[in-house]
Amino acid sequence: MALSKTEAIVLRTRRQGETSKILSLYTQHYGRISVMAKGARSIKSRYGGVLEPQTHIGLVFYRYETRELQYLSQAEIISPFAKLHEQLGRMAMAAIPCEMVERNEANGHVNPALFHLLLSTLTVIDGAEKGYRNAVRAFMVRYMEHSGFKPEFAHCRGCGQKQRSDGAFFDFSKGGFVCDACSGTLGEGQKLSAAVLERLHYFLQAPLEKSVQVSVDAAQGREMDRFLLSYMQYHIETLHHLNSIIYLDKIQSTLRIVKPDEQRKQYGDSE
């Protein structure tokens, strides 16, 4: 047992017993770990709001190499991501990268680059005036790169030819688009427009904070989101049916109704 110090993003919390919490954290130096925070839910807990999901914290914990569950000693906030916690849309968006990391990263698998990617994504979702959905898209593309499935959007996987102006078919098994000449044996995939291929390529290359400046219209957004989810799910089984995406769809569909009469109809009178 050793006292260890690191930075972490709180991915998720679960209630434990009367007043404790079990935290799922993605740490800079130890990868994903589970930590017991004794008494964290008590009204006079010294942790207060430190251990809430989607918060960047510094922590000291008792590290037992042979155990799955570690014990928290101290924690303090580094970035509270205040705006992210005050707006429903930002909060729902930030839950997507957190859930992906929580579901797919094995306990103790260390990847400091992924920690920084997650931290940058939450920072952009918290700070951007608009376009923060693109930060989540950029995270997804880069997460596939981190997981060994880097997609190729600029050149044909078969012959290396540059993409054409009318778009191309993205073959999931090949991890990239294929031009007409190389499309003899097409696997599972999706036809992508040139605009979407261009934007996805940009998300993969450009600094993450620049992703929010890219204009994406509604049709391109739908095409991109459908592609990203299908591509991730094709290669990574644990990313099937992400709860955070189902949740985002639910709140978006119900909040589109703004008129009181229609609200009552939607929620009450229709039954």
Binding site: L11, R12, P53, M91, A92, A95, I96, C98, E99, E102, N243, S244, I246, Y247, L248, K250, I251, T254
Partner: peptide, 11 residues
């Protein structure tokens, strides 16, 4: 309460 990671939405 609503919880994105547990898939608990308004419905």
């Amino acid at each position: 309460a609503m919880s994105p990671l547990d898939g608990i939405g308004p419905d």
